Simulated assay, not measured.
Amino acid sequence: MPNLAPAQRADTEKAKLEGKPMYPEGLFGLDWLRATILPVALFGIAFFTLYLRLDGVRVWRAIVLMVAIAIIALLGAKLFSLYTRGWDVRPLSQELRGGLRYPGAALAIVLLGPFLKRLILPKLPMTRFLDVLAITVCFSFALVRISCFLNGCCTGIQCDAGYCISFPKGSMAWYVQYQAGALADPSHDSHPVLPLNLLFMVGSFAVGLFLMWFDAKRSYNGQLALLYLFLHDGIKGLLEALREPYVAELQITSLSISAAGLAGLLLIAFIRRRRKDKGAGGP
């Protein structure tokens, strides 16, 4: 555009980018999400399979189950992303580069995971399946956040503290600021923002470690799954308040899932206490 004035060039460039988020290229010319999604999926399958071997579960059935769960999780994450965007469907090449929302994956797993378990691993107790799946999901989502960091997406509010990070041109953080007219020079990196993606990663990893430690101390099968809903989504829901741009549906859904997990824990604790009291009061 050599014949355009600087202001015209900026307007033309902005028009080209309008509604077309970009991501830095990762391995082999792919954006980081597509470059890392297969290794993360393989990790999740291996972790889930090896953990269930302690329960005498056949390896190949566990692998088939995890592959099926990974597929429905991705579909759920994509559908929830479309929902938060008002069902604004972009070209396939753009949809493949991002647009995945965790609450959709969580809801898909909760709703369809038990059905897949009954179909593929009918002998495995449902509650034990959910416990092991909860631990696996924690570590898998922690690894997915690495791609969020490399792509510069899922970032927080603009800040100037030492822990705040600037992301390069083409990242989602840069694109959001570019659309808002906050960048004086589009060739520069984004203004420093809170690395919310890393906080999400630490939260998922910490909950996963806690659940592994608590596994040997659990009072009943299914307790880990409820703790996962309460802790993991509770932490995520609180952190969502710092996301920029803020997406209310993400925070509301995560906090609702966390509340459901807490309600389940309290209900089961109440039922177990009543049974214990009745047993103690018997002849």
Rank of each mutant, 00 (worst) to 15 (best):
L74C: 06
G279N: 15
A182I: 00
E25A: 13
G99A: 04
P195A: 13
S254T: 07
R58G: 12
P91L: 08
T84L: 01
I271Q: 15
Q251V: 02
Y102C: 03
L150R: 14
W60A: 14
T155K: 00
Y178F: 13
I120N: 11
D277V: 14
P125A: 12
A35V: 05
M172V: 00
A73K: 06
G113A: 02
D185Y: 00
L209F: 14
K20N: 13
A134G: 03
C153E: 06
E95A: 07
R218G: 06
T253S: 13
D185G: 09
A161M: 11
P91M: 02
L224F: 07
D189Y: 12
A263G: 15
A106Y: 02
L226N: 05
V64K: 08
L54T: 13
S258T: 08
A68N: 01
K14I: 03
G99D: 02
Y51S: 15
V193M: 07
Y163F: 14
D11Y: 09
V247W: 08
F48L: 14
L224E: 08
Y220G: 08
A173P: 09
F48W: 14
P186M: 05
T253D: 02
P245Q: 12
F214N: 09
L199A: 06
L111C: 09
F48T: 12
S93M: 03
M1W: 11
I63M: 13
R101T: 06
Q8H: 03
G104L: 09
L262P: 01
L74E: 02
A263D: 10
L224S: 10
L196Q: 12
L82D: 09
T127E: 04
E13W: 00
G56T: 07
